[in-house]
């Protein structure tokens, strides 16, 4: 699907920089993401992709620049004003490059954590397990089951997350993001560690998610086939600097990109 013709923006990153010691991990980076599109961020290892994700989600505070999110209602928010845990209230949710699950909990409980911010459960109500609490829990469980079914892992819901194969764990992380009613999902290397079949399924899922859950998706991925296949726009970065933004075709044929990124890692398809 092509992005909507009105080209409403969902995320605006302007001149963002962050340095660790002397190292400029992100260097004056700007790009914008349209609502309802799948946007890919590519670049060699250490280019600063995860760092920019961390800046958007406020795990890191950027040294300079601005990061604005425009929600579906058209309200613009300066994300840099928020704390990490407030980001999800804006409808922005992420996964992690090294899967971050609560290993000892069941898959169901892991997914339910995704609804933490939508659940308004006063402590006293929980203490006495009031009816409203039980209802909220039951409804959330139902919602989680639907999401797990959508990802074909509903039958595993009561199993311990930490003992699942990598592919399942990555799905659980995605299920957790869907649980939060997201507007923007940020995926950090969703295909890393997956085999070919799993990667193909993932590509299909990401497109499905965008349609079914009406979200915008920003992803970092090394698997070029996946990126070229599903992304509407791609931003290529190297050493924290932007080298090109465009459609997959434009990126593929961009000589800068080929030199900086693809030259060392292999050819583009």
């Amino acid at each position: 699907m092509t992005p909507s013709k009105t080209k409403e923006l969902a995320l605006k990153i302007e001149d963002v920089s962050i340095a660790f010691g002397g190292l400029k991990a992100v260097d004056n980076l700007s790009f914008a993401i349209e609502r309802h599109e799948i946007f890919g961020l590519i670049g060699p290892n250490g280019a600063g992709k995860t760092t920019i994700f961390n800046c958007i989600t406020q795990f890191y505070k950027a040294d300079s620049g601005s990061i604005h999110f425009i929600n579906a209602k058209g309200k613009e928010t300066d994300l840099m004003d928020l704390s990490v845990h407030e980001i999800i209230d804006e409808g922005i949710v992420r996964t992690f490059q090294n899967v971050e699950l609560i290993r000892e909990l069941s898959i169901m409980d892991n997914v339910l954590i995704g609804a933490h911010h939508v659940m308004k459960q006063p402590l006293l109500g929980q203490l006495f397990n009031r009816k409203a609490i039980r209802k909220d829990e039951a409804e959330s469980r139902e919602k989680a089951e639907k999401i797990l079914a959508f990802l074909d892992i509903e039958h595993l819901k009561d199993l311990i997350a930490g003992s699942q194969p990598y592919g399942v764990q990555k799905k659980v992380e995605i299920a957790r993001t869907l649980m939060s009613d997201p507007e923007l999902i940020i995926l950090d290397e969703p295909a890393a560690g997956l085999n070919d079949t799993e990667t193909k399924e993932l590509a299909m899922r990401i497109k499905q998610i965008r349609e079914t859950y009406q979200t915008t998706i920003l992803l970092v991925e090394h698997d070029m086939r996946l990126v070229m296949d599903i992304c509407d726009h791609i931003c290529a970065i190297s050493f924290g600097k932007r080298i090109a933004v465009g459609t997959p075709k434009e990126i593929q044929s961009n000589p800068e990109v080929q030199k900086a990124y693809l030259g060392e890692e292999g050819e583009l398809e």
Partner: peptide
């Protein structure tokens, strides 16, 4: 549990 198991995930989930 989330706070113990993964502080990063806990924060990202609000």
């Amino acid at each position: 549990n989330a706070m113990r198991g993964s502080e990063a995930a806990a924060q990202a989930m609000g």
